[in-house]
Write a protein that binds this DNA or RNA. Structure first.
Lengths: 196, 196, 196, 196
DNA sequence: ACCTAAACGAGACGGTACGTCGCGTCTTCGC
DNA sequence: GCGAAGACGCGACGTACCGTCTCGTTTAGGT
């Protein structure tokens, strides 16, 4: 992520820092997590953190990204809604898991720090959005999805409700939400046309 | 939110604090805004802030709530989608305005501070969600909305995409988004059934 | 010694800082004494030290000066050598006392820091040298001292040997040294002229 | 001062370190001179310094001692005061030269560090004091110096004034000081006995 | 119109964390 | 096996803010 000699870098320090940062952020949130605590818990000098990351948010970004890993990959079985169900279940699982509360803290930090926002978007969001759009495009070609919709709008419609619950906290993200959202989104809000 | 004698309270100090907090938060975000700056800019002793608010987030909550005011009230003309369009346009305007960037900062701060989250929810979100549900309920009774949907799900579906864009920043909130969301949400994603 | 509002200054903090600095410097020398230790031992925030003094040496200078106080004042009984004996005994006592080891540390620090050197000279040395010169001048007028000597040279001759022992440490300063120096200095090194 | 295999030692490294240390100490004093600067300036790994010296003071001690070299040797022409004049002129030259400011820094460092004090005394001071005492003893035997004086007292009387000026800095060491001190010290402070 | 108690502007205080510097050690190459 | 290079764990630096705590100084009701 930066400058000094990558080859001499201590793996032990790196993973201890990522683990400590995650733990502390889970316990007390990102704002109350300090570099000093991370260093102490990871048995590491503060300089070693600053040498490789510009901020605690950057540390957590790397840690969270490693955690999220392949858990949110997009399958393609040919059945769009089955695939969406699978993938969105992964997303809902992560967003509802206390293990990933640092993910929400990062989004919080991004509101006040353009650097964090940029890194978060580039490293975490955009690759997944891109994958989602491609899956949707294929579905469109196969007639499983209206041809006249903007795919990015669809992505926002599908995932917006999860982020809404996770960040605004009117109620918690659940796995049941996946069915609810998919059902609503497929059929739309209009009442069925009257028979006859 | 208080204790001392409200009647002796200085209006001048109160509004200077709210204004200073808003300005500073707009310029540098909530995280980089300090009590000392607010006090200095408002020509106020720090104690005067701490006397009436528990934290800078609380100050901003009050300031933001005053700003948002009636701008997001729900009309009821009898036409659900016209009313939704009106109200969501208000929301989109606020979420896309730099003047209300502190609103997003507050949501950010809420991720790490349960007190902020609670106050934000109670003072800002829940009243508006409640109003939205009531409007939707009336529409349901009038057959303008499927009868078999959970109204809170609908609220999340309608507003999630705006918060998604505002907080994740894949692209900015725009007024055009109101039409896009409403159109998608009314018809659903399924392709039209083939004729005959 | 500096800028903020002197009237609001906490006496408790000031004397606790001076005492802590003296203690720590006596135990471990000035170089190994840290601002952090001083603050901790004095139950004081570091900022409170930096608010009133520019460096740990400045703290010690004030502390030492307060300690030395009137102990090195010059008497004038009319008998030069009796007065010198009295005053030099005071000096020898201080230079040989572990309580004033910070005095030597200060001289040490002055070798590398012009600010310390200047303050030390102005606050501690010059007033005493001035008093000594005046006493010597009066003695010169009364014929108790050669008229053709530079008084500053005399001061250096009288006190140099004490600082030499204290700083170079070939052997410790003692009270007996007062007699030795005075005796040597009065008579000179030349052997007595042969009787004849 | 060492341990590893002296024979494999790099002369290039050794002299580069000594030169760099001297230069840096002359520019900024010993306290502000760091091992890292010395290593960088000498194009040397830090370990190479720590391998051969225990501290930066030890490096400078060796460097200074090499500089002082034979410049302060004691001659013996048979004329005590001529020889003193010669030798003290050497001392005054060194003490007044900016090239040897590290010498004073060392004395400063010795005030807070017993190891430095010990090494300084053993390597630099004691041999020269010993030489001085021997020269003075011979002079005593030859009747050029009072028989009833302690020779170490005499050494302190002769050199104290130079160290006083050098370390306390009331005024700078000069070559003229040699004459002044010798003159005073030979004749003493007492006024001449009245004739008759 | 005066009195008095409160809220006020100001800012020093005891602290915690910041991001940086330098320490002395350790590790990895190349000669 | 010494030397150049530099990452490491660590501790202190001097600064920025925290939230609390006096200080006078307004300022408003109550008399």
């Amino acid at each position: 992520m930066t400058q000094p000699n990558q080859e001499r870098r201590s793996d032990r320090a790196r993973s201890a820092i990522l683990a400590a940062a995650l733990d502390l952020c889970r316990e007390q949130g990102l704002a109350r997590t300090t570099m000093e605590e991370i260093a102490k818990k990871a048995q590491v000098g503060k300089q070693t953190i600053y040498r490789w990351w510009p901020s605690k948010a950057a540390v957590l970004l790397e840690a969270v990204n490693e955690l999220a890993g392949r858990a949110t990959d997009f399958p393609d079985t040919g059945d769009l809604y089955a695939d969406l169900h699978t993938q969105m279940t992964g997303v809902a699982t992560l967003l509802s898991s206390p293990r990933l509360s640092p993910y929400l803290s990062l989004i919080g930090a991004a509101q006040d720090d353009p650097d964090v926002a940029k890194s978060f978007l580039d490293a975490i969001i955009l690759p997944r959005v891109q994958a989602a759009r491609e899956r949707l495009r294929r579905a469109q070609e196969q007639g499983q999805l209206r041809a006249d919709v903007d795919l990015e709008d669809v992505v926002e419609l599908l995932y917006g409700p999860f982020y809404y619950r996770a960040l605004i906290r009117t109620r918690p993200v659940t796995l049941a939400q996946v069915d609810d959202v998919l059902e609503l989104v497929r059929r739309g809000l209009n009442p069925p046309a009257p028979v006859g």
